[in-house]
Write a protein that binds this DNA or RNA. Structure first.
Lengths: 236, 236
DNA sequence: CAGCACCGTGACGATTTTGTGACAGGTAAG
DNA sequence: CTTACCTGTCACAAAATCGTCACGGTGCTG
């Protein structure tokens, strides 16, 4: 959770504001007023995340980002860009470079912190090697097996990862976007509705042991793995 | 609790005094000596609250406040005005612009801190992820579930958001227009009476656990979520 | 008590969201 | 080069939810 964050921002007041919020959230802050200083810092130690102002004196933020992406060593460092306006042109340019997220000024620090949290979590997928068992359904990451009692259940790789994620984050609702980030990977371009299809494949595989009811649809929000029975159906 | 506060005050001694108190209370302070500096800051980052001196060199505080209210992005930032005069006329003018509170100099720091706390609390619960529980009714945004004891209650997306808003802003009357803004979204074209229908759907869903009485009609004004029993009828 | 403004309610068509079956690649094993 | 999976996308079906309306009830005013 706690991370080392490189903050590249020329406006002192804003830099101070962001730094204070980051510190309060438990992160360590490395500050840079311009791209040159930032470059020097990155050479010494790789941060876990870079917060980068689009407009900087001297070398622009976008140029710095491009350089980060260009070098093997720094390629995988997540970048969040702070941009003056939400113009489509900027957004496209940013995506090209591979910024992980965008925050447009004026931004609320609260929202910025939320984005940072999201990006960090996306980058550090929680993959315990421990077996999970819920409601008689057992998933073992080591042997890559799923079983219900003696009954073995066969799944494709994607459905396996999906079920693993859902079981290790049970009871929570996950949006399709979140599932894509966590299960498919960070920078994958896939239709959101594809999640539906895999949910369906997962369900039909679990149908044999009547475990398909554990995967619930939350209309307008996403999906949830839950042991609790749905409220509606008192089907008798 | 901890917030980012923009302090616009030209008198250095006063500024220092207030800033020290804010910092001690755990807040982060952004300082500006005049409206121009304040404008520059707001262009980049939205504070959680603005403490604004009425009298400023150059552009007046009231003018700055008016500009904040005029722009979409900054409209909802709470403002507390600081003024030397205590004339009724000023108070009216300030409230007209939409200042959330009003403190007259000389003020006691303790009083000011209390006002700040009050305003922040009023604005805060809008974006919380925490579960809410009132009168045995529990709403959890994370699992997207509503329960009364072991009994689960099913709601559509809109009713869910409506109940969430009402519960996080309980004991207060909300007009239909306010509810539409807060629950439906800012620029939605929907009949006001539609709120009635959703209130009704919400009530009938809560009826099973006898929680429908928590949602009260305030004739001529709107609706209120309240734990207190209505004074009027002891319906048996 | 009449008139009026306001609210609750049931119904219904429209819209949005999700489930489902089919299909065209893609990949790895044989 | 087959064959046997997997995958991502689509189009369409099914389902849930939404917004509106009309009607009737309720409480306030004078």
């Amino acid at each position: 959770m706690a991370a080392n964050i490189l903050l590249v921002e020329d406006e002192p007041a804003i830099q101070e504001l962001i730094a204070a919020n980051l510190t309060r959230a438990g992160h360590t802050v490395l500050r840079a007023q311009d791209a040159e200083i930032a470059t020097r810092i990155v050479r010494d130690a790789l941060p876990d995340l870079v917060l980068l102002d689009w407009m900087l004196p001297g070398q622009s933020g976008i140029e710095f980002a491009r350089r980060l992406r260009g070098e093997e060593r720094t390629r995988n460092v997540p970048i969040i860009m702070l941009t003056a306006r939400s113009e489509e042109h900027d957004k496209v340019l940013g995506l090209e470079i591979g910024a992980d997220d965008y925050v447009t000024k004026p931004f609320s620090p609260r929202e910025l912190m939320a984005r940072i949290k999201a990006v960090l979590r996306r980058r550090a997928p929680q993959t315990t090697e421990d077996a999970v068992e819920m409601a008689g359904l057992r998933l073992d990451p080591v042997t890559h097996r799923i079983s219900s009692g003696a009954q073995l259940i066969n799944l494709g790789p994607t459905e396996f990862r999906l079920l693993h994620f859902l079981m290790t984050h049970a009871e929570r609702v996950h949006s399709r976007a979140q599932l894509l980030d966590q299960v498919w990977g960070d920078h994958v371009f896939v239709e959101e509705r594809t999640v539906d299809v895999h949910i369906r494949r997962l369900r039909s595989a679990l149908e044999a042991t009547n475990h398909d009811r554990l995967i619930q649809t939350v209309r307008g929000s996403g999906y949830r793995f839950s042991v609790e029975v749905m409220a509606t159906g008192e089907l008798e």
